[in-house]
């Protein structure tokens, strides 16, 4: 459903992405991994149509995303940003209801139907009881769930998530990864960035390793994340190990700096 072809992008004179190619099938869950500054955020913003490509293009179901009106794109692609505090205490249900924006005219008021849809989405992510609480007064994990509910309300097919577990505690990280998994099992396409190889192993069908603005590897998590690549990406000697049913990533030590 999503094709990225020879994508170049950057800011002013700094080129950040140098010819990215990959595609994502409907229903896949893809994790984007790479060190700080490798271009993950720029890639996400370009996928979302928020940042212009300087060359190449991103196509959604065969259509270039760059020329798509914001509203039409918003009905297909939802952005779930890193969890943030927000400046104002909008009620959780109102934040979720904003997902109805692309389905309504700019001046058209929301109706009881819209509210119903928002409440169902909150129910689906398990926070229906927080509907009336101010967004600023619920926990980080609950705020992230609210933003996911908003994406569900948006009724988008592709979810683009920027480090969805960032800043969450151990249990909430797992809860969120499980939710992401179940969303992709229900047929949604998910692209998430993450800093944790383990999270890619746990919840992604496929990983794309991003290194200095280029795709270093693209494939099933266990095959793509080789010790050599992890060492080049992060400067860490790490290996994948089987523990029971699961494969985990074990960091051994910092790799020797390259000569």
């Amino acid at each position: 459903m999503l094709e990225v072809e020879n994508l170049h992008a950057g800011y002013d004179r700094t080129r950040i992405l140098h010819g990215i190619d990959f595609s994502v099938e409907a229903g896949e869950s893809v994790a984007l991994l790479g060190p700080n500054g490798c271009g993950k955020t720029t890639l996400l913003r370009t996928l979302l149509g928020l940042h212009p490509a300087s060359d190449g293009e991103v196509r959604l179901d065969g259509r270039p995303i760059a020329g798509m009106p914001d509203k039409e794109r918003a009905r297909a692609v939802a952005y779930i940003p890193q969890v943030h505090a927000g400046a104002f205490g909008h009620r959780v249900v109102d934040v979720a209801m904003l997902g109805r924006s692309p389905h309504r005219g700019l001046f058209e008021p929301f109706t009881d139907d819209d509210r119903e849809i928002a409440e169902q989405a909150l129910e689906r992510v398990g926070i229906a009881d927080l509907a009336e609480r101010p967004y600023t007064q619920v926990s980080g994990g609950q705020r992230q769930l609210t933003l996911i509910a908003r994406a569900l309300v948006q009724n988008a097919r592709l979810f683009v998530m920027d480090e969805p577990v960032n800043g969450l505690d151990f249990g909430n990280q797992l809860r969120l990864l499980d939710l992401v998994r179940s969303l992709s099992d229900q047929g949604l396409t998910v692209i998430q960035t993450t800093h944790y190889p383990d999270h890619a192993l746990y919840s992604a069908d496929r990983v794309i390793l991003l290194h200095e603005g280029q795709v270093m590897a693209n494939g099933p998590p266990e095959a793509a994340m080789t010790p050599e690549r992890l060492a080049r990406l992060y400067g860490v000697e790490a290996r994948l190990a089987r523990v029971g049913e699961r494969t985990v990533c074990i960091p051994e030590r910092l790799a020797a700096p390259p000569p």
Binding site: R45, L50, D70, R73, Y79, G99, S101, P102, R150
Partner: peptide, 8 residues
Amino acid sequence: DEARSLGI
């Protein structure tokens, strides 16, 4: 970014 990705 969020507002734009909501189609505003």
